[in-house]
């Protein structure tokens, strides 16, 4: 017979302490069938979870597989619950908490339209070069930059463009992947 601890008091017996809010990135592999995105998004709205970023695209055409990357926030208990609730959805193959796995790579693509003349144009180009943003459209009074990076880098670039003549921003949301040889 195994020995049970002498004082069987649960670590959870004490009143719950409010855990701190964490941001996690979840990778969700799903069957690419009608309604699957509505199931995922509806789960978040129905149960009061946050979506900070959402990216969806088919990743294996023959197998009809799509990969959804969701950035969400909540206490560690909430995040665990979100993962389990996602796993309950029938067309879902796999849910991986990349943040919990650690060391994943996250990238986002943004297009940033900036309008201006003279010194502002030069300044915009200089900053774009520093951020390795590419010019994908140009007129004599505007640029559209394409920038790839993590969300913080894009935020920073957008902030810098604001005084120069930021017109609008379009962002893809985050795509993410673990480092190393293994799949999720």
């Amino acid at each position: 017979m195994m020995n049970a601890p002498a004082a069987p008091l649960s670590p959870y017996s004490s009143a719950p302490v409010a855990s701190k809010i964490e941001v996690h990135t979840l990778s969700v592999l799903v069957d690419n069938e009608p309604g699957v995105l509505a199931r995922v998004v509806g789960l978040f709205s129905g149960r009061g979870y946050n979506i900070e970023s959402l990216t969806v695209a088919e990743v294996a055409h023959a197998e009809h597989l799509s990969r959804i990357t969701i950035v969400t926030s909540g206490t560690p208990e909430m995040i665990e619950q979100i993962v389990h609730q996602l796993e309950r959805l029938i067309p879902i193959h796999r849910v991986t908490d990349l943040t919990l796995r650690g060391g994943s790579i996250e990238r986002e693509l943004a297009m940033i339209k900036v309008a201006g003349r003279g010194e502002d144009r030069v300044e915009a180009m200089r900053l774009a070069e520093a951020f390795r943003a590419r010019v994908v459209d140009a007129t004599i009074e505007s640029f559209v930059f394409e920038l790839t990076g993590n969300a913080g880098k894009i935020d920073q670039f957008v902030d810098l463009m604001r005084p120069i003549g930021l017109v609008e921003v379009s962002r893809t949301g985050i795509a993410a992947m673990t480092r190393g040889p293994d799949a999720i």
Partner: peptide
Amino acid sequence: IDPSSINKIVKVD
């Protein structure tokens, strides 16, 4: 049978 039921409301050991 439902993993989402465990630790949903009450933390268990």
